[in-house]
Design a protein around this nucleic acid. Sequence first.
DNA 1: TTGAACCATTTCGGATCCAAGATGTCCGAC
DNA 2: GTCGGACATCTTGGATCCGAAATGGTTCAA
Lengths: 252, 252
Amino acid sequence: MPHDAGSWPGDGSWAQADPRDAVATTKADQIRHAIEEMIISGTFPPGTVLRQDELSRRFGVSRTPIREALRQLGAVGFVSFTPNRGVRVQALDRDEWSQTYLARAVLEGAAAEAAATRITDDQLDELAAANAQFAHHTGVLRRANASRDDRGQAALAWVESNERFHSGILQAAELPVVERLVTSLRRVFSGEASWAPGSAADSLYAANLKQHEAIQAALAARNGRAARALMEAHIMDSWALMESVLDESQHD
Amino acid sequence: MPHDAGSWPGDGSWAQADPRDAVATTKADQIRHAIEEMIISGTFPPGTVLRQDELSRRFGVSRTPIREALRQLGAVGFVSFTPNRGVRVQALDRDEWSQTYLARAVLEGAAAEAAATRITDDQLDELAAANAQFAHHTGVLRRANASRDDRGQAALAWVESNERFHSGILQAAELPVVERLVTSLRRVFSGEASWAPGSAADSLYAANLKQHEAIQAALAARNGRAARALMEAHIMDSWALMESVLDESQHD
DNA sequence: TTGAACCATTTCGGATCCAAGATGTCCGAC
DNA sequence: GTCGGACATCTTGGATCCGAAATGGTTCAA
């Protein structure tokens, strides 16, 4: 191996971030994951130009696996290629964002409908737990007198419990292909928002919580049609929430 | 360039197959396209193991661009990777197929709804033309006394006019993100069927045609809700048609 | 002063070389 | 006869090298 492999940024935990790679994996795949995480976490904000040489130094490998990693990210839409010019972290405009939400809405709606007939009691319990968490963090976010630090913590936890709820439903639907699609849509979009849901439209958070509970109830009642309609409306409303966050951060 | 570049299979028309690549493109991208076409056209049936060395000889390039092309195809799901073992053309089982259709159904349904409010008269004319073509080829397919060769021709033309109708609606919807998603879903699935719709359930073809016409009418009437419901039902019915074709080919 | 051509620099794309993982076979031991 | 291990071979993964495209700055002429 060239360069100094010991000079890795962080602690090397980038490797095997995904259990799928635990058994056997290539550097190209590990690096794809690492770059993906860096994009999502905001280390590489949208619009950033990624230089192969710089990345190869940072990861302590030659440019070959870097290029393969970038090709994969390009195929999936995380970065955009310009031949002989380099790659740049994809930046979505508002219209593309809204379409991403639309796609998620109909796909997760279909998943919710499927889940209604298949969900087990254990899975329903899991959803209830996720929603309890969600309710708690929503409360912290809406509390005006919370410190800035608390808000940041709560925002992260809010996103996490939200994901827990949504992926719980996707798993219950037993539609792995659809689940993969939604996951990739969600990852692409999460890259842009360095999520500080912060002070955004207060009532929207409350509505969001109510919607989660309504969806949960529909699933418990095995009402597929209702679950679908509610989920669709919920995600389109989340888009409104997201838009208000975007507007806000634009005014900075 | 190594090897004999003159020994290209075919006539070199693989290059610049996509106008997007016309201005500036890399060999890796051209080869990705070429392999993709080969998978779709059935040259590389599902399950085929793709050897880098063989591909590099076939395309007259070194293994480097081949590997980048395969990485891209892998990221998109056309092929599956096994580290140190090679890549294999992805084979979908019946359940994954059905999910692919479900995803298409809801996404194209949403597109149809959007199209209803935006479609122009010119675009409506184009849909009508596509459907006229579709009707014609459906007729040939249903004619029992057609020769085997005629049927093959008609089958291809049938698929083509079907795509013309569907992509016409997607374009009218002005949702490029959704359109890309659907296109990639459709490409993956078309790889499997070396489409000889042939003798499959006759009444299903007739139903398919009627559904196209109903969707067209809903769009003309600017009825988004109806267009969406009809499109969804249409694609789920197409799945039934596809399933019967699959069953049939299984009995060979 | 401005614009166009030329050259140096940077970065990428592709080719080649080498190392490492995987498979299959052959041989020997039990 | 069968099981296990060592070895030969095949294929992939990664590193390095080189040519080509794009950029930016400089110079010369109009």
